[in-house]
Write a protein that binds this DNA or RNA. Structure first.
Ligand SMILES: NC(=O)c1ccc[n+]([C@@H]2O[C@H](COP(=O)([O-])OP(=O)(O)OC[C@H]3O[C@@H](n4cnc5c(N)ncnc54)[C@H](O)[C@@H]3O)[C@@H](O)[C@H]2O)c1
Ligand SMILES: NC(=O)c1ccc[n+]([C@@H]2O[C@H](COP(=O)([O-])OP(=O)(O)OC[C@H]3O[C@@H](n4cnc5c(N)ncnc54)[C@H](O)[C@@H]3O)[C@@H](O)[C@H]2O)c1
Lengths: 218, 218
DNA sequence: CTTAAATTGTGAATGTGAACACAATCACAT
DNA sequence: ATGTGATTGTGTTCACATTCACAATTTAAG
């Protein structure tokens, strides 16, 4: 099944809806209205409905959307119906936190391998997996069929690791190093830059305050 | 100084430009062209130029933009010229990783306090700060003048903590718990949801592959 | 001094997504 | 049955963002 002429913004928002629905399911909500869903995701109700309408008619007029059903639909649209194999590179502070985080497993992301260059760390166990030697990365990744690599190494070595990954068949990299990675065109990199998120957040909340003040004037 | 009629998309991209420039400065680049900056940020060159033109004429025709100068300009536009006081709630795996991360300081984010509810953790030192009792949070935050709170507590207690924060004058929350937080309208919440980022990334990289295949056909 | 190469800044055209109002539909009460 | 209140689905309109082409400017070389 493939859908045409779906706005990229709609596609992006689908992930927000998925998260909201996952949350609602946890809270045992049976149904949800477009307006409630919109509220959770910080968008407006007509947008939610229009977005969903690109993929079919999932709601019941007068009632709303069935949480479980809609979540299943969206997960299928986003091709998240099977579990994802993840390799972690860099078993440092962030890396170890990620491995021991149990929710990933539940959400279908299985961190099955971890690599490091530090002799002290290689061979040690973190949670349920054993840290392996970065030297073995290319071979081991091939063996296990890894879908995604998480990069949690110091910034300075990130470009070097990027080259190693480029020679495997991994095309998805989630990097915590806030720097550019030169990659072949087909490899996608998402950079988790917390400083940037904080900066953006701060700017937006300050904006709201000053806007509020202006609106109060007349 | 305030700017009018700047597209929100432009505003958003400014943060990308900032990160790229920070990176370029570290690499000791003197100048950068709009096309190079665009490449790093995954946008196109005219967009970079148009975006910057909303705020002034920062470049030199035939040469490009001075990295340091442009970075300073952007930081001023984004109101990031003074350092930001951050409080961390939840000194667990993620929390401790964040505190010991040194780059935040360099980028102007000063994690100056940490709070937890666990008796074992209260009073212990992490990096250069001492974990305090969550009970004291409201008073202590008032005293220190905190600009932003990072929420790194288990999902289940996040809503409860949200209420505590709502009663302080903090209006910016960076949360690692992937759930909705009910907050007064003026409080902004950014949710760092790594599962969602991975899902999005995976979808996009798969898309590229299939698109490539289609293009190859004729 | 003149010309060529590089690169910025920008107005006008184009394209795309958001908003909105409302028809369609459903559950349920009477 | 039938009316009522709630809520979805969508065609149209409008606002906004992107793109493009090119004039303007600078550097460097001949
Ligand atoms: N810790 C944080 O809170 C935080 C926040 C934002 C960004 N980051 C970024 O995340 C990355 C990791 O941060 P961290 O705090 O976990 O650092 P860390 O120093 O604790 O861990 C880095 C790990 O990478 C390993 N490593 C080094 N070179 C390697 C190589 N060539 N191959 C494989 N492994 C290698 C090290 O042995 C170490 O275990 C850094 O780029 C940092 O800038 C961290
Ligand atoms: N660890 C990860 O890699 C990861 C990844 C994604 C999301 N998250 C999310 O980040 C959050 C923290 O994760 P973690 O792995 O650090 O968990 P953790 O259990 O290691 O740490 C949570 C900390 O919060 C403290 N805490 C509990 N209740 C509290 C309260 N009422 N007030 C103050 N402190 C309290 C606990 O004592 C503990 O120190 C969770 O919501 C988790 O879902 C974590």
């Amino acid at each position: 099944m493939t859908y045409r002429d779906v706005p990229t913004e709609t596609m992006d928002r689908l992930f927000l809806y998925m998260r909201a629905l996952t949350c609602l399911r946890r809270e045992k909500s049976e149904t949800v209205s477009s307006s409630r869903l919109a509220e959770i995701c910080n968008v407006n109700a007509p947008k939610v409905r229009k977005d969903l309408s690109y993929f079919g008619e999932f709601g019941v007029r007068g009632v709303g959307y069935n949480v479980n059903e809609l979540l299943d639909h969206i997960r299928r649209i986003l091709k998240l119906d099977r579990s994802v194999n993840v390799a972690l590179i860099g078993a440092g502070n962030i890396g170890r936190a990620l491995i021991t985080h149990s929710s990933f497993q539940l959400e279908g992301f299985n961190i099955s391998m971890a690599f490091d260059i530090d002799r002290e760390k290689i061979g040690t166990r973190v949670g349920s997996i054993t840290v392996e030697d970065m030297m073995d990365f290319p071979d081991r990744v091939e063996e296990e069929g890894i879908d995604l690599a998480i990069l949690a190494v110091p910034e300075e070595v990130a470009p070097e690791i990027a080259r190693i990954i480029a020679d495997t068949n991994i095309i998805s990299i989630l990097s915590f190093a806030p720097c550019e990675l030169c990659m072949p065109e087909n490899v996608k990199v998402t950079c988790v830059d917390l400083s940037m998120e904080m900066a953006r957040l701060l700017y937006n909340s300050r904006q709201t305050v000053t806007r509020k003040k202006k609106e109060r004037k007349p």
